[in-house]
């Protein structure tokens, strides 16, 4: 299981816009590099990231080899109700990582 870090406030007022910063530990091998013997190193990247808020998808991104290693994605969402945010990263070679965080909205 890859190491992921997600940063978001634990409490928020209803209707407040909260910023979510996510980081996933992954080398993001581009598929364009070669070894010293000239062989192409196959591509191995995270291709997709989704964030759902109480089961409803609020953010989704498709990533490409031009993303830096350990991809950082920061975005925002409106705190509508208390509950859980689910984060999911999927990629080449069956890569999958998930993280969930709870938020209290009052």
């Amino acid at each position: 299981m890859a190491r992921v870090v997600v940063n978001l406030p634990q409490r928020a007022r209803r209707g407040e816009i909260i910023e979510i910063r996510t980081l996933a530990g992954h080398g993001m091998e581009t598929g364009f590099r070669r070894t010293q013997l000239g062989e192409l190193i196959p591509r191995d990247i995270i291709t997709r990231f989704t964030c759902s808020y109480n089961g409803v998808e609020v953010f989704r991104a498709e990533l490409h080899p031009a993303m830096a290693a350990n991809p950082l994605i920061a975005f925002s969402t409106v705190a509508t109700e208390s509950g859980t945010l689910e984060f999911r990263w999927t990629g080449d070679n069956g890569f999958s990582a998930t993280h969930s965080a709870s938020i209290t909205v009052d």
Binding site: I17, T30, Y53, V56, V58, F59, A61, P65, A66, M67, A68, P71, L72, I73, A74, F75, S76, T77, V78, T80
Partner: peptide
């Protein structure tokens, strides 16, 4: 539901 249209990331 994003509230604000802003993303930030890191690229190569």
């Amino acid at each position: 539901r994003a509230g604000r249209a802003r993303i930030s990331t890191r690229a190569r």
